[in-house]
């Protein structure tokens, strides 16, 4: 048994992304030199949405790259199964550009650590910033996000699911809590 709560609905996700787009532009003084890199898979859809929003505001869409962090994970040894490897596709040179790394949920920070290591092997960006839709806390590494859609205090046994249209779902963010049978 599990109890589900909708944390963000479609409109709220949309507003959060619009706000993040504005914050990115404000902090970087425009879209020049900005590239977006989404972490597979949820982060990629969000990066594409951010790119379109920035285009609406500024007229130019920043390029979007796709990052698969599998080969940089620190838990390959301990997981019960090898995670699937997908292609990393960063079709632009990151040198001297500001990379906004995009992910759906920020949790322990280990995924972001892997992504940072991977990005640094792939090029030498001027700066890396982090945008996430949900920050659920419980960091295990000294990592924080520059742009957050929603801060959501959670317990360990809860799950945060970001469901998006691109993956065939209705846009929403769900908090799932396991409930023991009475």
């Amino acid at each position: 048994m599990a109890v589900e709560h909708v944390i963000l609905n479609s409109n709220e996700i949309s507003r959060a992304l619009t706000r993040i787009a504005h914050e990115v532009l404000e902090r970087n003084k425009g879209a020049k030199d900005i590239v977006l890199v989404g972490i597979r898979t949820g982060g990629v859809y969000l990066a594409q949405r951010l790119s379109r929003r920035i285009e609406k505001i500024e007229g130019d869409a920043p390029p979007v790259g796709v990052l698969d962090i599998t080969l940089y994970r620190d838990d390959l040894d301990t997981r019960s199964a090898t995670p699937a490897l997908e292609t990393t596709d960063i079709p632009f040179d990151m040198t001297d550009r500001r990379v906004v790394l995009v992910d759906d949920v920020l949790y322990t920070g280990r995924t972001i650590r892997a992504a940072l290591d991977s990005l640094i092997d792939l090029g030498r960006p001027k700066e890396i910033q982090l945008a996430v839709l949900i920050d659920r806390g419980h960091r295990e590494l000294p990592i924080r996000a520059d742009y957050v859609g929603k801060n959501l205090p959670t317990a360990f046994d809860e799950k945060v699911l970001v469901l998006l249209e691109e993956a065939g779902e209705e846009d929403r963010v769900i908090l799932k809590r396991a409930v023991r049978d009475a």
């Binding site: 940089y72 994970r73 292609t87 991977s118 092997d121």
Partner: peptide, 13 residues
């Protein structure tokens, strides 16, 4: 195959 196209062709897996 994409990894082999990179400048740094080594990953820590």
């Amino acid at each position: 195959k994409e990894v082999s196209m990179r400048d740094i062709k080594k990953v820590p897996a």
